[in-house]
Design a protein around this nucleic acid. Structure first.
Length: 259
DNA sequence: ATGTCGGCATTGTGCCGA
């Protein structure tokens, strides 16, 4: 089972890029962020024509998440629990039933800039709600994965120029501590379980020639419960997607499981 | 180097979010 997370930066703007990627790479499961579409306007047909079941949780203009799966999707839940007043579409989860059942959570964690300020407060509050949902997943003692755009640079080695991010909401000490509080519940950060050291990025800004200068950051992550980590055989970043035609500013991150 | 995009409100372009 190969699962990919990909912040596509708009399904309407990226439709050909994403469909070409799905056709070429054929992930069993793909979780998408920033679909920037309401559910009724999501172009379902071309995805279904490629053999994908599809569950979306969108809103107008911004945010929005989706799960695509070649296997049936069961017990779909939309929205991160813990704040009934939060109407931002940043969380969807479902069970994928292949050789065995996997709980798949797709998340688009708030950016939080400028920090400090109300947007940063929202980010930290969202991360505390994430911790509570994550603790419940750990308690279930079953294979579960939380994949997505975390908008968190975990360590200095995850940025080409860490000094440039020191006051940014993606790298502030409080952000990294909140990310560690989730990890420390017992999750495996899939990429770091397979690869050490710097120079591995998942996002390059459209501005200032960031891609050409390899001025990237690693902010798209997959966190696995112990039972999911037991099944993991590989994790990698599909870097070359950033150099293709009409790229997103993010690239896919892949997890392979013996499941 | 505040250097790029996508989407919205809106019909030409400025604003927001990233």
């Amino acid at each position: 089972m190969r699962i990919a997370t990909f912040n596509i930066n708009g399904v309407k703007a990226r439709i050909e890029t994403v469909l070409g990627w799905l056709e070429r790479e054929a992930p069993d499961v793909a979780v998408l962020q920033e679909i920037k579409s309401v559910d009724e306007a999501f172009p379902r047909a071309p995805f279904e024509d490629l053999g994908y079941n599809l569950e979306t949780h969108g809103q107008k203009g911004f945010n929005g998440v989706a799960i695509l799966s070649k296997y049936p999707l069961e017990d779909v839940a939309r929205g991160l629990p813990g704040d009934d007043g939060d109407d931002q579409a940043r969380w969807i989860e479902a069970t994928v039933v292949g050789k065995r059942a996997l709980r798949i959570c797709c998340l688009y964690l708030p950016n939080g800039n400028p920090a400090p300020g109300p947007k940063y407060d929202y980010k930290l509050a969202w991360m505390e709600r994430l911790r509570l949902r994550a603790a419940a997943l750990i308690a279930e003692e079953t294979p579960a994965l939380m994949l997505g755009d975390y908008n968190v640079i975990p360590q200095a080695e995850d940025a080409a120029r860490p000094e440039a991010w020191e006051t940014d909401a993606l790298y502030r000490p409080e952000t990294r501590a909140a990310f560690r509080r989730v990890l420390n519940l017992g999750f495996t950060e899939a990429f770091r379980a397979r690869r050490q050291g710097g120079g591995h990025y998942s996002f390059w800004d459209y501005q200032a020639g960031a891609w050409n200068r390899n001025d990237g950051i690693r902010i798209d992550h997959a966190l696995l419960t112990p039972q999911a980590a037991d099944l993991m055989t590989e994790c990698w970043i599909e870097t070359d997607m950033r150099g293709r035609e009409k790229p997103s500013d993010h690239v896919p991150v892949w997890v392979e499981l013996d499941a």
